[in-house]
């Protein structure tokens, strides 16, 4: 005779653990922290090596020069480069009751990155059982992303750029943590291989409700050939914001910033 066992959702007495409530509180902290941020923009690509971080830093500095209050969250925890690209020295981060003070670049870009926390040359390592660490490592990285969003005193920003690592996993985590999906700026190089990888990422972002702001094609006058930027812009009905040469001048990034902001 089977036991008559009620289901999880049928048990409604107060539960001291309140795990769903704890998760909801985490989300509220993210929303509260970002209440002063005009827009979160994720810099995304389906593949590595296209210059996402380079583009993120160039765009952030241009936004700051143009008078927009800009911040960069470096979400590439295993290959963080944003502080170096923004010329921010790695020094101690100041902790206050209400969060961590983000360092500021010479142009005024606020930034937070795992590079500010890790020992020189050491990879990101987590405490925990070594066996089957792939099961929990991504969850911990998602927790780190949540804390970078919620616990850094970003203050009032017009734009918070999020430099994503290659692939789509971190975008998914970001979209789930934010009250609404972030806007997305995609970066590609001219090749067909890049086009195909970036297409998947753009499709993934669009299916999750993200607004696609446009495409930046990087490294256009070098060894790579193709028209990935134009093709992707046409296919998704978004602007090709810029074709960035190997050695872009400050003016190039300023133009990207103005076009992204619709003031060009």
């Amino acid at each position: 005779m089977p036991l008559n066992i009620r289901t999880y959702h049928e048990l409604t007495e107060p539960d001291r653990s309140g795990l769903p409530g704890q998760i909801a509180a985490q989300r509220r902290r993210v929303a509260a922290r970002l209440a002063g941020v005009g827009r979160v923009v994720a810099l995304m690509s389906g593949k590595g090596g296209v210059g996402k971080s380079f583009a993120t830093a160039g765009l952030a500095r241009a936004l700051a020069r143009g008078g927009w209050a800009a911040g960069v969250l470096d979400a590439d925890f295993n290959g963080p480069t944003i502080p170096a690209l923004l010329r921010i020295p790695v020094t101690g981060c100041t902790l206050h009751e209400n969060g961590v003070e983000p360092p500021v670049s010479p142009e005024g870009v606020r930034c937070f990155s795992m590079a500010l926390l890790l020992q020189d040359g050491r990879p990101l390592g987590f405490r925990g059982p070594e066996a089957e660490s792939h099961v929990w490592r991504e969850t911990l990285e998602a927790a780190a992303l949540r804390e970078f969003l919620a616990d850094v005193a970003w203050g009032a920003l017009d734009r918070l750029l999020v430099d994503l690592p290659p692939g789509i996993q971190r975008f998914q985590e970001l979209a789930e943590l934010l009250p609404a999906p972030p806007a997305v700026l995609t970066v590609t190089i001219p090749t067909t291989e890049s086009r195909d990888a970036v297409r998947r990422a753009m499709q993934f972002a669009r299916e999750r409700g993200a607004e696609l702001l446009g495409v930046v094609e990087n490294m256009v006058d070098g060894p790579f050939t193709g028209d990935a930027g134009e093709a992707l812009a046409r296919e998704f009905g978004v602007p090709l914001l810029a074709r960035i040469p190997w050695h872009p001048t400050q003016d190039v990034w300023d133009e990207v910033a103005r076009r992204m902001e619709g003031v060009a």
Partner: peptide, 12 residues
Amino acid sequence: PLETVRGMVTTG
């Protein structure tokens, strides 16, 4: 602030 990062990262 950064409770999980500070509590779990071993290479900080």
